[in-house]
Computed example of a mutant assay.
Amino acid sequence: MTKILLVEDELALRETLEEILELNNFEVSVAESGEEALESLQNSAPDLIVSDIMMPGITGLELIAKVHQQAQFKQIPFIFLSALASKEDQNKGIIAGAKGYITKPFKASELLALIRELLG
């Protein structure tokens, strides 16, 4: 089963996303913060990471940099799911190494299509 690490600090959205992903046959591990996500990576490497950008502590942009600094995690596809909707913000995410950037509010079908595309 494909493993997805979901990094989202907002409880309601995190629970909704977890449910959507599990209903679509993904194994989901969740993290409330960038720090928690880094700890989770040490236990089990996911096939893909979906992360918010604006979080307390380590932001999503800092998280992707830390993840990609580690050789064993460098190839994990990363999707940003963020309320930061400007083209400049989206470009920052892609330049940081994200394979996709979806703005909130979003459609579940859009997220699922991108995940499936990135995972082949």
Score class of each variant (00 low, 15 high):
residue 107 K to S: 14
residue 104 K to V: 09
residue 29 S to Q: 15
residue 92 K to W: 02
residue 91 N to A: 13
residue 61 L to A: 01
residue 92 K to H: 11
residue 82 S to V: 06
residue 78 F to T: 02
residue 53 I to N: 13
residue 100 G to F: 03
residue 40 S to W: 01
residue 65 A to G: 01
residue 32 E to G: 04
residue 80 F to K: 04
residue 70 Q to K: 14
residue 71 A to N: 12
residue 39 E to I: 08
residue 71 A to Y: 04
residue 86 S to M: 06
residue 36 E to T: 00
residue 66 K to V: 01
residue 33 S to K: 06
residue 51 S to R: 14
residue 87 K to W: 01
residue 95 I to G: 00
residue 108 A to P: 11
residue 75 Q to R: 05
residue 55 M to Y: 03
residue 97 G to P: 05
residue 32 E to P: 00
residue 38 L to D: 04
residue 84 L to Q: 15
residue 87 K to H: 10
residue 50 V to C: 14
residue 60 G to H: 07
residue 64 I to V: 15
residue 64 I to S: 08
residue 48 L to K: 10
residue 97 G to C: 06
residue 98 A to C: 08
residue 74 K to I: 04
residue 85 A to M: 01
residue 29 S to M: 13
residue 56 P to D: 13
residue 72 Q to N: 11
residue 105 P to S: 14
residue 57 G to F: 08
residue 35 E to I: 02
residue 86 S to V: 03
residue 62 E to C: 07
residue 32 E to R: 06
residue 75 Q to L: 09
residue 46 P to T: 12
residue 59 T to P: 02
residue 30 V to M: 13
residue 70 Q to T: 12
residue 58 I to H: 00
residue 70 Q to S: 05
residue 102 I to E: 08
residue 90 Q to I: 10
residue 78 F to D: 03
residue 68 H to R: 15
residue 33 S to I: 05
residue 77 P to Q: 10
residue 98 A to E: 10
residue 109 S to N: 12
residue 37 A to P: 09
residue 57 G to L: 09
residue 104 K to R: 14
residue 84 L to C: 10
residue 108 A to S: 15
residue 108 A to C: 05
residue 73 F to E: 03
residue 59 T to K: 00
residue 41 L to K: 00
residue 63 L to K: 01
residue 100 G to T: 04
residue 38 L to T: 05
residue 54 M to E: 14
residue 34 G to T: 11
residue 101 Y to I: 07
residue 61 L to P: 06
residue 28 V to I: 12
residue 70 Q to H: 09
residue 43 N to P: 00
residue 81 L to T: 09
residue 64 I to E: 05
residue 46 P to K: 10
residue 88 E to K: 15
residue 75 Q to A: 15
residue 52 D to S: 05
residue 82 S to T: 15
residue 109 S to L: 14
residue 68 H to G: 01
residue 68 H to N: 11
residue 104 K to N: 12
residue 108 A to G: 07
residue 91 N to Y: 08
residue 101 Y to E: 08
residue 89 D to W: 09
residue 81 L to A: 07
residue 45 A to M: 05
residue 73 F to T: 10
residue 50 V to T: 09
residue 59 T to A: 02
residue 82 S to M: 06
residue 42 Q to D: 14
residue 61 L to M: 06
residue 84 L to H: 13
residue 61 L to T: 02
residue 83 A to L: 02
residue 32 E to V: 03
residue 76 I to P: 05
residue 34 G to F: 14
residue 28 V to M: 06
residue 108 A to T: 10
residue 67 V to T: 08
residue 51 S to H: 14
residue 80 F to P: 07
residue 81 L to W: 12
residue 69 Q to P: 00
residue 70 Q to V: 15
residue 33 S to C: 06
residue 46 P to I: 13
residue 90 Q to D: 00
residue 61 L to D: 05
residue 100 G to H: 09
